[in-house]
Amino acid sequence: MSTPARNQASFILGAAALLALASTIVLGLGLPPTLEQGPYARLIAIHPPLAWAAYLAFGVTAVASVLYLWQRTRSRVWDRVAASSAEVGVVFTALTLVTGSIWGRPTWGVWWTWDARLTSTALLLALFLGYLALRGVQTDVHTRAKRSAIAALVAVVDVPIVHFSVDWWRTLHQGRSLAQLTPQSDLDGSYVAVMLLGFVAMTLVYGWLLVERYRVEALEEHFDDQGLGLALEERRAEGEAVAVP
């Protein structure tokens, strides 16, 4: 279940993630204040990368769900990947909302407003919390996996809606930050560099969390299966003694 090679890989990934995250924080806090937002622009080093990690996590959940639903690739591995990635994605989505809100208070003047970007992101969080709640419903392994895979494919539709909401509708939220990463844009050079570092850091953090969370998921299923086997044996023993019709 946990081979030395895998532990080592996870350790290296974790160390890289920690290093990248620490660098992002140090360099992010050291960014110069900007013309428009003053010191608060520094939150931009982590907010878009957090949102990206959430997109990535739910994207992985969707791909793994398809691989489970497709007969030829069906494996419990994909169900575990989908579940683990969704939980990690929920953490990143929540942090996207929290950091956005903390940025919005001093810059917009409000913690929250119901514009298309914020609303669709809140919806994304609700959808995947629902997905996790659905996974908590007791049933057999295959039914749960199939049911959650379909739910994940419904929920993931909101990811492109969140991303393009700022183009499709009028919002208080600014345009896509990623679209601004072009040479002729008005981004300060240091902002481009730190934001890119932030994207790398959050991607690594996501990858490491996924590996660790997958391990927990696999072990829990291992014990669940064992527990089920034990329960069946007990039933059989009882059945012999009481002789249930």
């Binding site: 995250l21 806090l29 942090l95 929290v98 940025w103 953090v205």
Partner: peptide, 14 residues
């Protein structure tokens, strides 16, 4: 302080 709050919340939660 908002900046520190944002970074702190991120680091703390993760």
């Amino acid at each position: 302080s908002y900046v520190l709050l944002g970074y702190g919340a991120t680091l703390g939660t993760l």
